[in-house]
């Protein structure tokens, strides 16, 4: 059982950085990567990401693993671009598909940019615990409060979601084992049968999850929580 969320225990400047900064950094980094157009800028981006990777002390296996999981997707990107992008001087053609050099180049460029963004994302998940993520999101949402965005409610929702993920994961796995005992495995053949076999997993999971939601919301209301009247964590709440 791997540590939840892919977080890697280590100490590095990235681990210690505040989550809000990392979240903004990810968005900025992704934007910069998307601006890469040619081999020079691509090389610069590669170096930058590599340096960050070393600094994060997370290990290349963890950072590169998602790329392996995406290998088919990346292949499709390269193939689609190689075959459909351009019509000039095809090296090979078959019907509407034309294999061109500019197409291959573009495909590789897009694939490389995708990989870089994915690695940046992996760096974020590996250096930030779920609680830190929630905190970071909260911090980032604060300025929006002035625009009338219900940030407290949003922050609450984010917190509840993160809090429930490990619980629901554990329960779903237990349920899967219990249902397998009841009736044998889920490896049915045929789409309809497979879908039907999911019913016995999904119905109990949802009932259980919504039951918890029900209990939690009742508990919150019993303590005076109201969605519209909240004014920050220490605001007074009227009990009606």
């Amino acid at each position: 059982m791997r540590t939840f969320g892919g977080y890697v225990w280590a100490d590095s400047p990235l681990h210690r950085a505040p989550a809000a900064a990392k979240l903004v950094g990810l968005v900025v980094g992704a934007a910069l990567v998307l601006a890469v157009r040619g081999p020079i800028t691509l090389a610069a981006a590669l170096v930058a990401v590599a340096v960050l990777g070393v600094v994060s002390r997370v290990g290349w296996r963890r950072l590169l693993a998602p790329l392996w999981g995406m290998r088919w997707f990346l292949l499709v990107i390269v193939a689609l671009n190689a075959l459909l992008f351009s019509v000039s001087e095809p090296l090979f053609s078959l019907g509407p598909l034309r294999l061109t050099l500019p197409g291959i180049e573009r495909g590789l460029l897009i694939a490389a940019r995708t990989c870089l963004i994915v690695v940046l994302g992996a760096m974020l998940t590996a250096t930030t615990t779920p609680q830190q993520v929630v905190h970071g999101v909260r911090e980032l949402l604060k300025p929006l409060a002035r625009l009338g965005v219900p940030t407290e409610t949003a922050a609450l929702a984010v917190g509840v979601t993160v809090q429930f993920v490990p619980t629901l994961l554990r329960e779903s796995r237990q349920l899967m084992r219990a249902q397998e005992l009841r009736c044998g495995g889920f490896a049915a053949r045929g789409i309809m049968r497979r879908a039907v076999s999911y019913v016995r997993l999904l119905v109990p999971v949802f009932v259980c999850a919504v039951r918890r939601a029900d209990e939690l919301s009742r508990a919150m209301e019993a303590r005076g929580y109201r969605v519209d009247r909240r004014r920050g964590a220490t605001g007074e709440r009227g009990c009606s």
Partner: peptide, 29 residues
Amino acid sequence: MSQTKRVVIAAVCAALGVVLPMAFHALPG
């Protein structure tokens, strides 16, 4: 349904959105 409950249900369903791909990815597909 109260507003509070709607918010909490949204959060719980989001949590399921995170969990279901993980919990059942051992199953083929």
